[in-house]
Amino acid sequence: MHKVRITLFLLMAAAILVLALIAGPRMINPLAMSATEREILLSIRLPRVAVALLMGMALGASGAILQGVLRNPLADPYILGISSGASLAAALGLLSGFYVFGRSSVPVSAFIGASLVSVLVGAFGWKRGGLWPERLLLAGIGLNFLFSAVLMLLMSLSSDEGLRRAVLWMFGDLSMADWTLIPSASIFIVIGLGIALFRSKALNALILGDEFAYSLGFAVQRERLILFAAMALMTSASVSLGGTIGFIGLLMPHIVRLLLGADSRLLVPASAIAGGAFLCFADLVGRSLMPPLELPSGTVTAVIGAPYFLYLLRKKDVLGV
């Protein structure tokens, strides 16, 4: 029965991927393309879908990992302040005209910002030789508030142009996606995913609690640190690709748990796939709803995600309460 569900799940994800490439706002028939359409497909749609796929995978997997590591079903990579830290770094880069890496300067600063915040959260969550879930959560929330405030301060002091660009960046902009950043981001995301997949058993054990994880023979603090680092790496890469797009990390693990169960060995990769498909879908909707106006994907994920999340809360099994 499980196999049937998994197959259906994969088929649906694949279908969404293909649809994202071919559909909206204008349908492109890959078997009968004009030169312009081929140009659009290869130069605009393909990198865009690739970015959406990568980001969605990174965020979905990160959400699954974090909900396990923090033992909290409401955990999302952004709850730890990674998004506001990245936005702050990106805004600083935009406003100060940081151009060392050329066009990739903003993504690089976002990546650096996200990574720095992750380290900070880890540092604040560290006590007596280990990372503690409650401390991590509180540290993340605190830092989130701090960076958001600094960001708002910065924005109120900045020029209109810089402001506009910073805000647009934060909304999650996939419209300018191109191939430049994809290779390096892919490497980080693949590494993060790989680490998480290899440590799925440890993640399962951590979910049972530190004592049982220890009893089952895991080095609890080390596993937690490694998984946290994998999550941070993937989230940083995702943020550098296309800004902050919420709800994927929060929602995908819950959906996958309902469909395929809570075992991390399945949950992490399936959340990644679900996230990738979902973001491709959201991007498709965002650019097809009111063409040529493009709704930021982050908005679409929130509009779809939030009500669905609230609906999920009404189902008992989600939280076990």
Binding site: G68, G209, E211, F212, S215, L216, G217, G261, G320
Partner: peptide, 26 residues
């Protein structure tokens, strides 16, 4: 050697089989 904590705090929907199966991890 196994240690059994006082508080069993499992709010994640693992099945019985899945948890028992974790005994194989070592």
């Amino acid at each position: 050697l196994c240690y059994f904590p006082q508080h069993l705090d499992v709010s994640v929907p693992f099945t019985v089989r899945e948890i028992v199966g974790m005994g194989m991890y070592p």
